[in-house]
């Protein structure tokens, strides 16, 4: 009924390659914009993901005294795994790796594991700045998680399903972003929050010497950096599925539309990033609980009333 078919798990490596490719493109755009701000040509910064990867692959792993190596390793490696598992439920046009009837809940559950992973990276290093970074992430997550859950609820209520493919099909007439803009805005804020990125990157901020990244080097640092970019990319792709009509669009095949819309959303976030200051957890707490949460609850109420009225 929805025209989405689950494809063989043999396609998983290709899916991972697409996710990493789009994430690298976003990082390249970020590098290009930084180069332009520095007064150098745009193309001088495009090679940033390649140069940084080469640098970190060459670098030795650094250890700290009495580090909790196992916990640190779980956190460092886990972020990329979570991003891949999130991307698995995103329908790419007519194909999806895992057509879960509860795909939305799957996404949200993975999102909560990020709490543990970032904290473990911060805790496992046995280092003061990394620990402060870990504290900051927990406080930040406390601010974005509940608004995020309700923002995810709105499209699910409208589509009367938790299955991403059904949510895409329910947007055939009208994209959800047009009549639930508050939920979309809150989703985008939470997206940069769980990706520890942009204005919500204070857990790795310059004011705490890199925070949870403070004592990571070599492949460990690469995995966390890539984990953050892929979480952002997977989150943007899921946002396209929930709010921007997924693969809907004229002429081109569905999968191109998903990639195109994801790229546009990512580009908008990257372009905005440099203009926004860091929002530290203690600053956003009141805004999240007293502003975003009531607003998104109102949004869910409006959506529910519309759905009941229609039926």
């Amino acid at each position: 009924m929805t025209g989405v078919a689950e494809i063989s798990a043999a396609w998983a490596p290709a899916g991972a390659a697409v996710l990493l490719g789009v994430a690298a493109a976003a990082a390249a755009l970020d590098g290009a914009l930084a180069a332009r701000a520095d007064g150098r040509p745009l193309r001088a910064g495009v090679g940033l993901p390649v140069a940084e990867t080469a640098r970190l692959f060459r670098q030795r792993r650094r250890n700290t005294v009495s580090a909790d190596v196992l916990l640190r390793w779980i956190g460092v490696g886990g972020l990329l795994v979570v991003a891949l598992l999130k991307a698995a439920v995103v329908p790419l046009g007519g194909a999806v790796l895992a057509d879960l009837p509860t795909g939305l809940v799957w996404f949200n559950a993975l999102d909560v594991t990020v709490w543990a992973l970032v904290w473990l990276v911060g805790w496992g290093q046995n280092s003061a700045h990394a620990l402060v970074g870990g504290y900051r992430f927990l406080a930040q997550a406390l601010a974005y998680e509940l608004p995020l859950m309700f923002a995810l609820t709105a499209p699910a209520v409208a589509a009367a399903s938790l299955r991403p493919a059904d949510i895409v099909a329910a947007q055939a007439d009208l994209w959800f972003v047009l009549w639930m803009p508050v939920a979309f805005a809150v989703y985008c804020l939470a997206l940069v929050g769980f990706s520890v990125w942009g204005p919500l990157e204070t857990p790795v901020g310059a004011d705490v010497a890199g925070g949870v990244l403070a004592d990571l080097s070599g492949i460990d640092r690469w995995l966390v950096l890539v984990g953050r970019w892929t979480l952002l990319t997977a989150g943007a792709a899921f946002g396209v599925t929930l709010f921007l009509g997924g693969g809907a669009g004229p002429l081109l095949p569905g999968w191109t539309w998903v990639l195109l819309k994801t790229a546009v959303l990512l580009a908008a976030l990257v372009a905005l990033r440099r203009r926004l200051p860091a929002l530290r957890p203690e600053r956003i707490q009141a805004a999240a609980w007293l502003g975003a949460l009531p607003l998104v609850l109102l949004q869910v109420l409006v959506v529910s009333v519309v759905v009941v009225g229609r039926s």
Binding site: A35, D38, G39, R40, A44, G45, R55, Q59, R62, H129, A206, A209, G210, L213, A214, D215, L216, S217, R221
Partner: peptide, 16 residues
Amino acid sequence: LRRRGWRAATSPADAD
């Protein structure tokens, strides 16, 4: 550093 496209490190672990 700006002329070369290098960057300032945030911590010793981040530095070459």
